[in-house]
Structure formats: structure tokens, C-alpha cells
Computed example of a mutant assay.
Amino acid sequence: EPLSQNELQAFALALRTKLSRSGDDEVAWMLLGRVAMSLNEFDMAQQSFDKALRMNPDNMQVLISYSQVLLLEGSEANMTRAAGMLSKVLKVEPTNLDAISLLALIAYERKDWPQAKAAFEVLLASMEKSDSRYSMISERITDIEQQMQTEGSVMPVTNHTGAIAVTVDIAKELVDKQPKDGILFIFAKAASGSPMPLAAVKLAKYSFPITVELNDSSAMVAGLNLSSAENIVISARISIDDSVMPSSGELEGHSKSLKRESVSDYKLQIDTLIP
């Protein structure tokens, strides 16, 4: 059962007493930080997590908990700091749903609708429909889509050092199978890593062949972008529902694993009908 407020305060006092008597203890500092979060004592939580990270900078649990504290404070500087911590987590644990969820919230707070939508869709795809969070995340995606429609948001395309020019064409046998009013997504992901796109372009109007540029400008957080990956897979998908997640009846194509530094341009063919 959840601890009462008095029990949490007693636990915090016991942890501080232990630390003052026996010196630094990574687990004790981490626990004190979490208890402080529960008591809404965010300064104590930050100080405790700082202590734990000095002892072990790669403690993934502390990085995630610390990010939560920074997001509760809500300043742009702390959101940027939290995003950096979460990026570090995803480099080690690319499918960590807690980290992806927090990154989705950061993008949402920043009104970065395309990135927030992509992150929430990754979360939704990882859940069963019976999950209590499924409907909440689905509603959040609907809200984001309404915001994007209102503001006309698109995934940005700008010149950038280290960019990759991707030319996409479609197989002749699939030309007549294109969905009406389809939306073209062209994106790159790490070959073995985070399911989040590292760079993406979204086009509502297009004709084949078409050339676009993938670069770091559409990264959700610093450090989790095209330049951060050693090997990548480039994909193109004609979506029927404005979602980067695949659905039946959509068309797609994927590259093999590519060494990013050796690729400046790439020709990709959409050659598969998703059953």
C-alpha cells in the first residue's frame, strides 16, 4: 500500500541519517530523491539525484527520475536538460518506454506537434488496447492532430551539414495501388536503436520520383538525431491515416542498413504493400 505522508517523512529522515553516518551510498541517494519527489520537495530531490549521478553517471533509473523532476519544474532550461538525460537513456536502452513517454511530453509542451505525435504513436504501438493508458494516449494523438491541422504543422526540411538527399520512386506494379489522398513519410531510424525517427519529412503533395533532404533539423532532442547514429535505415511510406506507424493497405520501402557517414544521397523504392 502507498506510504502515508508521515511515513514518507520518516523514511526520508532515516535515509538522511544513514547517509550522514555511513557516507555516500548510490542506492540511498536514489531512494531519497524519489521520496523527496513524493513529498513535493523538488530541491531535495535534485540534490539527491545529483549525488547519485556523481557516483554513477550511467544510472538509468536516476536519469529518468531526475528528468521527471526537471519537467515538473517546467522551465525551458530544465526541459532541455531533461531531454539530454533521456537521450542518454535511449542510446543505452532504445526501447525504454518511460524515456520515450517523457520525450513525448517534452515535445508536447514545446508544441512540437510532429515529434510529439511520432513519440506518442511509438508508445501506442507498444501497448495492448486493454492497457489503461491506451485510450488516454490515443486521445492525446487526436488532440495533436487537431493542433497540427489548425497550425498547418509539417516536419521541417532545411539545408544542414551531414544531410542525406533521398530520392524516392514507386514500383510500377504499385502505382495503381496508392491510397487516395495518401501522405508520404520519408524518414531515417537507427539500424539498431531507438524506434523514434532520427529525421523525417512529411509531404501531403508529391509525385514520383521525388527528392528530399533528411537532416538533424527535425530531431526531437539534441543527441538523438541523424548525426548520432552510426548505422541507419531509410524508409518511405505512403500513409492512409497521417500516422508514421504502419497500417494495412499502405505502401512502403526500406533501405538496407547503411553506414551514415558514407551516405550523402540514396535512391529508395517503395516496393511493398502492407497486408
Rank of each mutant, 00 (worst) to 15 (best):
D112P: 05
I240E: 11
S248N: 09
A191R: 04
R34N: 14
V201Y: 03
V157P: 00
L224R: 02
G152W: 06
Q178T: 14
M127C: 07
M196H: 02
P209L: 04
M44P: 01
S75R: 01
T158V: 13
Y266P: 05
E73N: 10
M44N: 14
L8P: 00
S75H: 01
N225P: 00
L72E: 11
P179S: 09
V89C: 09
I137H: 08
L123G: 08
V62D: 03
E230L: 08
D265T: 05
F49K: 08
N59S: 14
Y66W: 05
D265K: 09
V92L: 10
I64N: 04
W113G: 06
E1K: 04
V69D: 03
V263D: 11
T150W: 07
L72I: 09
R133D: 13
V62H: 01
T142W: 10
I164C: 07
E213P: 01
F42P: 00
M60E: 11
S218Q: 01
R81M: 06
S194W: 10
I270D: 11
A200L: 02
A83P: 02
D131F: 00
A99W: 04
V263T: 13
T17I: 14
A199W: 04
N215S: 15
V168K: 08
A219W: 06
E41V: 06
I64M: 04
A171G: 01
D216Q: 07
D98A: 13
V89S: 05
S235Y: 01
I164K: 07
L86D: 06
L123R: 07
T158E: 12
P195K: 10
K172N: 15
M196E: 05
T211R: 04
A28M: 11
T272E: 07
T272H: 09
R54M: 12
G33E: 03
V157A: 06
L124F: 10
L13N: 15
S126F: 02
K256D: 09
D265C: 00
S38V: 04
N225F: 00
A188P: 06
S255N: 06
A99E: 11
E93W: 02
L8W: 01
K117E: 12
Q61E: 13
F208N: 13
M79Q: 15
Q46N: 07
I170F: 01
S153Y: 04
R81K: 13
L70R: 10
I164V: 15
G152R: 07
N59Y: 12
A171R: 02
L226R: 05
T272V: 02
D265W: 00
S194P: 07
V175D: 01
P114S: 03
E261G: 13
R133E: 12
M60G: 00
E145C: 00
N78L: 14
P94G: 15
M30C: 00
A163I: 12
M148R: 03
L32E: 09
T158W: 03
L102S: 04
S138F: 02
